[in-house]
């Protein structure tokens, strides 16, 4: 079954070249032997969108402390390890000073508050993700709903995506992370990772699939909004039309799906 599927994929690629995901998905749908009526489908309660996006209202953050519960919620749900050695750090969402989060937008004359608070940064789930362009195995790919995901089963650990990402949003498992997941901060229902693969924020794809909002959004006390950028009536679009927002490194043409109200 799988070999037939792979054959079709390869045949499809050689016949038509790159960038034909819809056709490939058509071939790849269905899950079981021919003749049986087994079907594979989305959960009924799943949240769906044309393009998921996030608006972070940084006016609601006053110190680094305000970020802590948000980061902790993500770390726990995704079994993020804690390493003594900062070189091996795994980070999905974390805090950065303005000059690091927005290096080309910093100026010494900005309001004091901007220089004092910590800005949450995470994968931007770009509309034109350079990491997806770089990956030699499609282990990182952009889903139909705009989420840039990792397929840990397929990643060969070449770290080309890390070089390609202009936001430093990707982490590599320099060693087996499992022994370093804090005992009191882990989630039995979510897998860990293995050594030698790259990982990053997944916009909580596993939670959207069961009708829940991302963990950071839930833990943010309303400071982070999440919704469909394609839907003019969504929360995120309302916030975007009512406030001036910035994106990280807009000039690079990656079109981040994460917006900041400063």
């Amino acid at each position: 079954m799988e070999s037939r599927r792979s054959f079709l994929k390869i045949a499809g690629i050689s016949a038509l070249g790159a960038g034909m995901h819809p056709t490939l998905n058509a071939f790849a749908s269905g899950g079981s032997d021919e003749g049986s009526k087994a079907v594979v489908k989305r959960n009924k309660e799943a949240l769906t969108a044309v393009r998921w996006g996030m608006v972070i209202d940084t006016r609601k953050f006053h110190s680094e402390k305000d970020l802590e519960p948000i980061i902790k919620a993500c770390d726990k749900i995704h079994n993020i390890p804690e390493f003594e050695n900062k070189d091996h750090e795994i980070k999905w969402i974390w805090g950065e000073e303005f000059k690091h989060a927005f290096p080309e937008k910093d100026s010494e004359f900005l309001p004091d508050k901007v220089h004092h608070i910590s800005f949450p940064v995470l994968c931007n789930h770009c509309e034109n993700p350079p990491c997806v362009r770089a990956c030699p195995t499609k282990a990182t790919f952009k889903r139909e709903d705009g989420i840039v995901l990792m397929d840990f089963h397929r990643c060969i650990g070449c770290r080309f995506c890390m070089a390609a990402c202009p936001y430093g949003s990707r982490s590599f498992n320099f060693r087996d992370p499992r022994p370093f997941i804090p005992e009191d901060n882990k989630n039995q229902e979510f897998p860990t990772r293995m050594k030698g693969v790259v990982e990053k924020c997944n916009f909580c794809a596993e939670r959207l699939a069961v009708g829940k909002l991302p963990a950071c959004v839930e833990a943010s006390n309303g400071a982070i909004a999440f919704g469909d950028l394609d839907d003019p009536a969504s929360d995120v679009r309302k916030l975007l039309s009512a406030n001036y927002t910035i994106q990280r490194k807009q000039a690079l043409g990656t079109e981040p799906s994460v917006f900041y109200i400063v």
């Binding site: 070249g17 790159a18 195995t137 499609k138 060969i156 650990g157 070449c158 080309f160 590599f172 693969v197």
Partner: peptide, 18 residues
């Protein structure tokens, strides 16, 4: 490579944009 035993994925999932 972090996962050298998977190196043939480059051929199994050919990706001309990379």
């Amino acid at each position: 490579l972090g996962q050298p035993m998977r190196v043939l994925n480059v051929i199994l999932h050919p990706t001309p944009n990379s």
